[in-house]
Simulated scan of single mutants.
Amino acid sequence: MAFFVGNDITSHLIVGQVLSDVLRAGHTPYICYTHQQPGARAEPELRELFRYERTLLHSWVHPYLDSLPAPLHGTLLSPAGIAKLHRDKAVVRVVEDVNDPAFIAYLAAEDVRAGFSVRCYQKFRAPLINHFRPEPGEPALFANLHPGILPRYRGVLTFARSMLQGETEAGFTLHRVNEDWDAGGIVSLSTAPLRYDRSVLENMTDQRGQAAGLLLDAIEQAAAHGRWTDRPQDPAEAGYYSHLRRADLDELHRKGIELFRPRAVIELLVDAFTRAGSPESFELRGILAGITSRRPEAVGTPV
Rank of each mutant, 00 (worst) to 15 (best):
P44V: 13
L214M: 07
F3C: 07
I14A: 11
V270G: 03
E45C: 02
I257Y: 10
G256V: 13
L201W: 04
A42G: 13
D230L: 09
D248S: 12
I129T: 12
A160M: 00
A40L: 13
R87A: 15
H243L: 10
A170F: 03
V112A: 05
D248E: 12
R51E: 11
D206T: 05
T274I: 06
F124G: 03
E169M: 05
Q221D: 04
V91D: 04
E96H: 11
D66I: 09
P71M: 00
R47Q: 14
A223T: 10
S162T: 11
V94M: 06
A80R: 14
V299G: 07
G300V: 01
E43F: 05
R231P: 04
L49E: 11
E138H: 06
E135C: 08
H175N: 00
T34N: 03
T229N: 11
A143C: 11
P38E: 01
T205F: 10
A224I: 00
H12S: 10
A143K: 10
V265N: 01
N178H: 11
G171K: 09
C120H: 15
R133K: 12
N203P: 06
S11G: 02
T274R: 06
A143G: 00
A25L: 11
G239A: 02
A218M: 05
G26L: 07
T301I: 11
